[in-house]
């Protein structure tokens, strides 16, 4: 996967998880299909997918697997926890802020994926040890701390549509690859020392 593909994938995932309706879901899914190197399962009934998406992530019933980091990171499942604030501080270090500050917890998956896109762009253009530290921290101490629990929760859902499962798989594969590459960097560094 090259850098452009990686960014395209992340953008598609970001847009998928912040979609408001079936049209936006379908558009993001199509974009994801373009960015991955294999064919995603096709979706026949987008309305049904939207219903499932809402049951899993949105509501109005208590969602099965909310996509806010603090739900998984805080000692208890809640939104607006300490980890929400840390996410906000990371955005701030990048000179960014959520347009929905206070009304949508900053640690919404799509906002975090957006921050990943920015960080990856910065690293490509002009990296520095400070930027690398921030990236490593965000990846290892934040994303890798909650996403696996969320993946697990989503995968445990009854009647999980294949299209949602595959987006989770794509995101999980990306995360695993990033963690791996960090580890190999760490190993290299350790070897050099």
């Amino acid at each position: 996967m090259n850098d452009t593909q990686e960014l395209q994938q992340l953008e598609a995932l970001r847009d998928f998880f912040i979609a408001r309706n079936e049209v936006q879901l379908a558009a993001a899914y199509a974009a994801l299909n373009m960015a991955v190197s294999f064919d995603l399962p096709s979706v026949n009934d987008w309305e049904a997918l939207e219903f499932s998406f809402n049951r899993l992530f949105i509501g109005p019933m208590a969602p099965f697997a909310p996509f806010f980091a603090s739900v998984y990171l805080e000692p208890e499942p809640q939104v607006m926890g300490k980890s929400t604030l840390i996410t906000r501080q990371i955005f701030e270090m990048l000179g960014l802020q959520s347009p929905w500050q206070e009304s949508l917890p900053d640690d919404h998956l799509s906002l975090e994926l957006d921050a990943c896109i920015r960080l990856l762009t910065i690293r490509q253009a002009h990296s520095s040890p400070e930027v690398e530290d921030l990236w490593n921290y965000f990846l290892q101490e934040h994303l890798a701390q909650w996403l696996p629990s969320w993946f697990k929760r989503v995968r445990a859902a009854e009647n999980l549509p294949a299209a949602i499962l595959i987006t989770i798989d794509v995101l999980a594969a990306w995360l695993a690859e990033k963690i791996d590459s960090l580890k190999s960097t760490d190993r290299r560094l350790a070897h050099n020392e």
Binding site: L7, Q97, D114, A125
Partner: peptide, 15 residues
């Protein structure tokens, strides 16, 4: 570094 000026736009807004 000037890198921020070249960042793609997305969900997050300038602080």
């Amino acid at each position: 570094t000037g890198v921020l000026a070249t960042m793609p736009s997305g969900l997050l807004q300038p602080l």
